[in-house]
Nucleic acid binder design. Structure first.
Length: 596
DNA sequence: GCCGTTTTCGGCCCGACTGTTTTCAGTCG
């Protein structure tokens, strides 16, 4: 772990975690609550929506829940000098290698310290390799407190660190969970079964797949579960839970309980962890203690069971909180006041505002694969009232301005014909196809086509497809300058991120949001599973600033138009209501918004 | 070390599972 001036959130988070572990080793009893505080700060930084260093720049570090005067002071020293005298002191005397060992599942602070001492693993370099060697030579099982079984589980866990899987995209995880649920339902003891955790909260990526069951015979259900066809290894199996690893590396946890407590089980295992911690702290103040078994009065020790999740929240004098909001982002306070918003739903969506057709305008990036007619047919099946056809702009290298205008005129004419036939066909739900385009924002902030070419469109989307690494200020100015054109209405896939593949660009969101608000520009939530961009936490910020958002599937084939629901999930996690999402407006409302 | 609609002092979420021990500590979610 190297401390330096430019530490990123994940580095700072790791550092705080290490400091927590160091306190645990040095004097657990004395530092008990420091251990907790540093761990909480670590998680808080991990989940920040902006860089900690930027917050420090603006003097807002202490506003982060979990960071107080003391940690803020230490971080201040790091950002100013690249050093931390305090952290160095805390970590002094501990072998750096032990913190590497903590990356292995099942090895915490105490175990890591013991192993690094006994096996003389001092430096960070190849710490895991040394541990692996010791395991293979059978040296670990002879250490006091270890045995044959713990040695074996360390061996397996090391190989899992090495092949650690990236998080699954939401649709993949949904599909996989669906298959396991179908298998579980073959057990006749099962009363209810639901996907839980980040899957139920519809997070953009899912790590482990969590599933909960209500069963008349939990033991038998667990036995049935571990016989799932793709099981490679059973990690653990007790009376109420079991974990398996599948051949593809997926980690599946099942929690099984009696139907009478299913409501609290559902609540408990949906999380998030932060939501649950906040909820339990809130319950404590009411003299109540929460667990997956229900709610206990701290005074009388009397227990209440809940078969339904809604009753669980009601007992706490809270309105039911949709899983998508359970991230400890203010939802408990809102539930107290009965002010949980009615979130936008897939059935509210009346349009898809980013679709690429196969109409060949010799685009700069990939052209769509389905023709306009099939797209309109599909849009009808989805019950839409209007759509926008948004191919990429004609390539700059292959065309001069005159040629670009010719191509766009051809496309405009094709769309005009489609609109004409829609007008004369009452049976169709789609009433209008918009002539749009996804225009590249060039590195200097200019657009890839001229204003004269833009004038041929109803409106344009703009997006970044090159130079992702510019600094924050340059990128921000670049985007503002692109959005400033009259015909430009939507900032599409704004961060440019590709999940598990590419981080997004750096933008000053305050500046972007302010500009969009003042100039009636919209920001897209791109529903393509590998993008889901704008990300959920920024959706929440945007909505707080009064920005209107659009949903677009970025479909390059009619099948992709079914991806709208993933975009809706992001909107929901960002607390979006119908009013925040332009696509939920009727055609006439949309027309009005377009003219603003 | 953090935090506040009972508190600027005195609390700090809760329980399952595992392995090694012989009643529990460590880890995890």
């Amino acid at each position: 772990m190297r401390i330096h001036k430019g530490m990123t959130n994940s580095e700072i988070s790791e550092l705080l975690h290490i400091v927590s572990a160091a306190y645990e080793i040095k004097d657990k009893e004395k530092n008990k609550y420091k251990v907790i505080a540093y761990d909480r700060a670590s998680v808080a930084v991990e989940h920040l929506s902006s860089e900690a260093k930027d917050l420090w720049d603006e003097g807002k570090l202490e506003e982060v829940a979990g960071i107080g005067t003391s940690i803020a002071k230490h971080l201040d020293e790091i950002f100013r000098t690249g050093k931390s005298s305090h952290f160095e002191k805390v970590l002094k005397g501990l072998p750096p290698g032990m913190f590497e060992l903590m990356k292995v599942s099942g090895i915490g602070a105490k175990t890591a310290y013991k192993l690094s001492k006994e096996l003389n693993i001092v430096s960070e370099k190849d710490a895991l390799g040394k541990l692996e060697k010791a395991v293979k030579e059978g040296r670990v099982e002879n250490i006091e407190g270890f045995g044959e079984q713990s040695q074996e589980s360390i061996e397996k866990a090391i190989s899992e660190v090495k092949s650690r899987k990236k998080r699954y995209l939401l649709p993949f995880a949904t599909e996989l969970a669906g298959d396991i649920i179908r298998w579980l339902k073959k057990d006749e003891n099962i009363v209810n079964v639901d996907p839980l955790g980040s899957l139920r909260r519809k997070a953009s990526t899912v790590g482990d797949i969590d599933i909960a069951c209500a069963s008349k015979d939990p033991i038998k259900t667990l036995e049935h579960f571990v016989k799932y066809k793709n099981t490679k290894r059973v990690l653990e199996k007790g009376d109420n839970t079991a974990s398996i690893i599948l051949a593809n590396g997926a980690h599946i946890d099942l929690m099984v309980h009696e139907p009478s407590v299913y409501g609290s089980v559902l609540q408990h295992f949906t999380g998030s962890k932060h939501h649950n911690i906040a909820l339990r702290e809130y319950a404590n103040k009411l003299g109540l203690s929460l667990s997956e078994y229900g709610i206990k009065s701290l005074k009388t020790n009397r227990k209440h069971k809940f078969s339904k999740e809604k009753d669980f929240y009601e007992y706490l004098k809270l309105s039911w909180i949709p899983p998508e909001l359970r991230e400890d982002m203010g939802e408990i306070e809102k539930a107290k006041e009965n002010m949980i918003p009615k979130l936008v739903e897939l059935s509210d969506i009346k349009a898809d505002l980013q679709i690429h057709s196969a109409f060949n305008i010799e685009t700069s990036h990939d052209l769509g694969l389905s023709n306009m007619k099939d797209i309109v047919k599909k849009a009808n099946e989805l019950g839409y009232e209007y759509i926008a056809l948004t191919e990429h702009n004609p390539s700059r290298s292959g065309h001069d301005e005159k040629q670009v205008i010719e191509l766009l005129k051809k496309k405009a004419k094709a769309i005009e014909q489609i609109n004409y036939s829609l007008k004369n066909n009452d049976k169709k739900r789609v009433m209008k196809v918009y002539n749009s385009l996804e225009v590249d924002i060039l590195p200097d902030g200019n657009l890839a086509i001229s204003d004269k070419a833009l004038d041929l469109l109803d409106f344009a989307l703009v997006s970044i497809h090159s130079s992702f690494k510019q600094d924050k200020k340059t990128t921000t100015n670049r985007v503002i300058s692109a959005l400033n054109h009259k015909k430009v209405k939507i900032f599409a896939h704004p961060t440019g991120r590709k999940i598990n593949y590419r981080e997004g660009v750096e933008l000053d969101w305050d500046v972007i949001f302010k500009f969009c608000k003042e100039n009636s520009k919209w920001i897209e939530i791109n529903a393509a599973p590998q993008r889901l961009d704008l990300p959920d936490y920024l959706v929440k910020d945007a909505i707080n600033e009064g920005i209107k958002l659009t949903l677009g599937t970025d479909a390059h084939h009619i099948d992709h138009m079914d991806n709208m629901l993933w975009g809706v999930s992001v909107a929901q996690r960002g607390w979006a209501t119908k009013a925040d999402i332009i696509n939920s407006y009727s055609l006439s409302e949309f027309e009005k918004e377009l003219d603003r």
